[in-house]
Each structure stands twice: as C-alpha cells, then as structure tokens.
Design a protein around this nucleic acid. Structure first.
Length: 412
RNA sequence: GGCGAGGUUCCCGAGUGGUCAAAGGGGGCAGACUGUAAAUCUGUUGGCGGAUGCCUUCGGUGGUUCAAAUCCACCCCUCGCCA
C-alpha cells in the first residue's frame, strides 16, 4: 500500500518536497519523522487533529513518530498564521501543559517503547535552552538569509502589522529542532500544517548545508469548514478541546453531528480511520440521509478521541434526546441534594449551575425568547421556584435552546 | 532618539464632556421554518435575586469636573517616516 497515496486519497496532503524520493522511502521501510506542537494551552483542540491523524496513519504504516512539544519555541511564539504576537507564558505553565498534551495524544498514538516504532515524546526545551547565543548565531544564524526570510509568507504578512525580533527567530529555532532530531534521532521527515511550510523547508536547507543530507517535509492542508471557518479555536459555542474536562465527550460528539452537510464526508476522511471505499458509500447519501454520515462521523471521531465507551455513551444520549429511543442516563448530568428543594430552586439557578447558561441574565433572556425547557415544557418565568412536591421523578431534564441538554438528579 | 498616526466591548469599527453598556458590520445565541444540516426572516448579544437601581468595561496611573471612552499630565504598547 502506498502510504502517500492513501494519505492523499484522504485529502491529508498539501505540499511536499521531492515527492518521488519520499514516496520510495516511505514504502521501503520504517523511517523516523517528527511533528511539532507548540504548547500554547493545556489542551489540544480541533486544529491539531489533522497532524495527529497523519502521525497516526504513518505510525500504523510502520513509521516512528517523534512528537515534539515546543516547550521552548512556545516561549518565542510562531508568527505563522497569526496576526498578533502571542502572549508569553511562564516556563512552569508551559511545562505543565506539555504533560497534559501527552495524555491526550496517547489516544492517537502508541507511545509504547517496547515497539520499535513506538512514538516518542520530546520537548525542545531540553536542547534549545542549552544554546549559547554567540555559538548559535555563528553555527546556525550564518546559514539564514534575512532577505529570504523576509519573503516567507508568514513573515510577509506580519510585516504589515508588526513582528518582533523574538518571533522572527522562530524559523531558526524550528530549523534547529529538525537538525537536532536528524542528528540525534535520525528523523528525515517533518510533517506540519500548511502554514509551517516555510519553517519546514528552512530546516531542510539547514540540514543540507550542515550535514550534506537530504531530508523531507510535507504539509497538510489547513482545514476550513464549508463556511470558511478554521477548525481551530473559534467554533460556534466556543472552542472544541480534546481534554474531556474542557469539552465533554458528549459535546464532542455533538460537534461532529452538527457539522455542515457539505463537510460530513470530507471530515470523515480527515478525522476517522474508515477506509476511503466505505466513505465513498457515505458520500452517495444526500438530503436528510446525510445524517447517517454524520452519525458515523461523530461516533468514529469521538471513539478516537475519547475511547469507544465514551463514544457509545454519547451516541446513546443523543439518541435518547433527539430520536427518543436511547437511555437518558448517559445525558450529561449534575447531582443536587434533594434538601435544596425545601425552599424551592429557581430555573435560573438550575440553568446557571449546570453550565447550560453562563449567567443569570442569559437564562432570563432565553426565557423571554422561548428557549428554556424543563421536562419538555417551555418555561417563560425562570424566577419561579421549583419545590419537591412539583417533582414527578427524582430527575429533571433541562434544555436550553434547540439542542443543549442537561439532567439534574436529586439525591439524598 | 525625532516627527506623525493610533490603542474602544468576542472581532472589525463609529463615537471627542452628560441623552454611552457605547452606532454599524461580522460572529454568537434564541424563535419561526427544517433533517440536531443549509438558506431565509425576526429578535437578542457585560454582570447583578429584573432593577427610571448598583457594579464592571473604551491601553495604564493620577488629575480637572456635579458629570470623562471623550479634557489635562505622566507612563506603556503598536504602526509609518526619518535617524
């Protein structure tokens, strides 16, 4: 099986260097490659998913992934693809983030060191921190032409809004990472997002100059939805994170099931392991049948990120709420002591405490607009207190708007 | 370092003493219509036990004033030209 071809069939490839030779190498045996993720938050989000999936596919094809957490480069901030300077975080914070990121990645990659191609997690703080400025300038800096760096797309854009020298150095550091990993780990391939192209080829050039060796790079497309939204932080309803504490598996599932029709099969290629032949069958579905595609997409994607069990729960909850034939026990819920009903609890309290609404004003607004429901009944006066004798069972199903649900279980 | 232009709410962007929680657009949210889709129309969009009340928000800190996003002083940051 041609690895590159299969990645290509899934729309996972954007550009690459020396395609022919790289293809040969990928088919010839196991090679070491690396993908870098800067630690800029405590969790990965949807924007990181495509590189992770590529790493996963390559590992399944027998290649050895090196996942580079950019603990040091995060301190610098990559200007690529962003219009303003990143805020600088403390070292301790970034180190803590790196630990959390690894946990999430274990869902996508096998980190078992028993396997010859088990993934390896590295933090570039381990080598970049030791660099001596003068030595670095003389060894590495002399190989970079400022004239050429200025023509890099990422830099060109920032030239208009401003770019500090700190960020301007990012390309050198990332190139140095590649050189280091080539020397120490024999990494001969770097994979990254399309916005990383400039940084990747800079690293390839550096290695050719320093080591007279040819290494390779390829980038994956920056995925946008059919309405042009980036798959990164800003999604309707806020960011979608891989950390289940930030975005629950249920919410994660819901995100996928709510994607635009036009994106369903496309996302299936990118974000699941389903064979392209099977996806082709889903692509034939049209109209309301597209929901079947989305159900499959949501289930598979959730299973990858959170495990099969969580995916089943999320699917079950969705069926209970939207199709009326699943078990409501898997709907996200909150326990509240029954004793609180002695004085009565208002819907305002319930909706804010469960996180369905961020503020009390929001509950009132929703109530005014007809978007508040308790047990399927529209609530227009959320100030009213609910008391124990109004309960028919020990739980209440809250609903905010069309599709946000939460259960309250009264205990004690 | 000099000169010029700027820093406004989630984003862009109006606003140059009270009528400003701040126009307009984008985005978000809700309702209607649907298929948990899209498109469209309408409403809404700082917080507070909902209130001609209070609190927080116009880069920061101090001032002037009955009253400051708006005026003054100092400071920080960004952009442009020059050095």
């Amino acid at each position: 099986m041609e690895v590159l071809q299969s990645l290509n069939d899934r729309n996972l490839v954007y550009q690459m260097t020396n395609e022919e030779r790289l293809n040969e190498l990928l088919n010839a045996g196991s090679l070491s490659f690396y993908i870098g993720f800067d630690a800029t938050a405590s969790s990965l989000h949807l924007g990181h998913l495509v590189p992770l999936m590529i790493a996963s596919h390559l590992q399944k094809a027998g290649h050895k992934p090196h996942i580079l957490i950019g603990g040091a480069t995060a301190l610098v901030g990559d200007p690529s693809g962003r219009s303003t300077e990143r805020s600088l975080e403390s070292r301790d914070t970034i180190n803590n983030w790196a630990v959390e990121l690894k946990v999430q990645m274990t869902r996508f990659l096998d980190f078992d060191d028993e396997n010859t191609n088990g993934a390896v997690l590295l933090n570039n703080v381990d080598w970049l921190n030791k660099l001596n400025y003068i030595n670095f300038l003389r060894d590495i800096g002399k190989h970079f032409s400022v004239n050429r760096m200025l023509t890099a797309e990422s830099v060109k854009q920032r030239l208009e809004t401003g770019l500090s020298f700190l960020e301007f150095n990012y390309m050198l550091l990332q190139s140095y990472d590649f050189l280091h990993l080539f020397r120490e780990r024999n990494c001969i391939l770097q994979v990254g997002g399309a916005d990383q192209w400039g940084n990747i080829v800079a690293g390839i050039d550096l290695i050719r100059r320093k080591e007279s060796a040819e290494v390779y790079g390829f980038t994956c497309p920056l995925v946008t939805t059919s309405t042009g939204e980036k798959m990164s932080k800003s999604q309707p309803g806020g960011a979608i994170w891989l950390d289940p504490n930030l975005t629950s598996p249920y919410q994660y599932y819901q995100f996928w099931i709510n994607v635009d029709d036009r994106d369903a099969a496309y996302f299936m290629k990118l974000y699941t392991y389903l064979p392209v032949e099977e996806i082709a069958e889903f692509e034939k579905l049209t109209g309301a049948d597209t929901r079947k595609t989305k159900e499959k997409l949501a289930f598979e994607a959730t299973a990858i990120a959170h495990g099969l069990e969580e995916a089943e729960k999320a699917q079950n909850a969705a069926k209970a709420l939207f199709a009326g034939n699943g078990n409501q026990k898997n709907v996200p819920s909150t326990d509240i002591p029954l004793s609180r009903l002695a004085d009565g609890v208002s819907a305002i309290d319930l909706f804010t405490e469960t996180g369905l609404c961020p503020s009390r004003g929001e509950v009132r607004r929703l109530g005014r607009q007809g978007g508040l429901y308790i047990q399927g009944e529209r609530v227009s006066t959320p100030e009213d207190r609910i008391t124990e004798n109004m309960l028919e069972e020990s739980s209440l199903l809250l609903r905010a708007g069309k599709k946000r649900y939460h259960r309250i279980n009264f205990t004690g």
